[in-house]
Amino acid sequence: MEFLRPASWEEALAAKAEHPSAVPIAGGTDVMVEINFDHRRPEHLLDLNRIAELQEWEVAGDTVRLGASVPYTKIMEHLRAELPGLALASHTVASPQIRNRGGVGGNLGTASPAGDAHPALLAGGGEVEAVSVRGTRLIPIDDFYKGVKRNALEPDELIRAVHLKKATGPQQFSKVGTRNAMVIAVCAFGLALHPDARTVRTGIGSAAPTPIRATTAEEFLAAALDEAGLWESRGVLPPAVARQFADLVSGAANPIDDVRGTASYRRHALGVMARRTLGWTWEQYRGTEQDELDDRSKPCA
């Protein structure tokens, strides 16, 4: 095994080009588990800790460019207003120690369906900035997940950042685990209202081979809101709409039975989470003007 320690982003890209099988390691919270438990012996480890820009974020216009290694703790602390769904998801990641090290780049690189950031990224919408010595490309998040632990990156590419749309409406994230902290998702759900575009986006985790959106549910809800003029009236959401939305989310999943939970429970739980998160976001949308949204988008803690 060889440990590559590039001092700059350019060096990192060059190293990845030279050793396409090199495994990038930033927070280490996935890679080191595999090494400690002898599940993986890469020829090269590519350390990204020395590349400062990966730990930085910029808010410009209506997007946030979030460095791949910005730790979840920082997202919780500093980006709650801009990225409320991702901030909530960040808070459910493992433990404080892990949140201090891990970042979105790791979740994307590993592309496990159980990664906590995925449902929030899918719901919020955005693009993955994939870079190689050949150049930069922005991969829409919807096209990023390709299979179980497979993503759209080319072997010579590294994730530099994600470009995320600043929230224009309430967002929520909810995850079922069998413990009240430090738990891997049995399944998870992210929801974002986009009042500016009159759309709704969702994300489902741990209930299909990849993180997915529940597009039928999104379209149904957007249409229902439109038809009833609810975006403008901020009126009460009809329970039947919430129920059908929940059913459609549930139906969008394609889960399996595994040691963490059953397929049927996952479908059921996704429906409950969809209904609840819709209730929370809609109530928030009803009760607030846009500039107030930022402060109340999360429950305490």
């Binding site: 808070h91 929520q172 009240n180």
Partner: peptide
Amino acid sequence: GGLSNTTHGE
């Protein structure tokens, strides 16, 4: 559900 934010009392 704890930190996983699954219920606010519902």
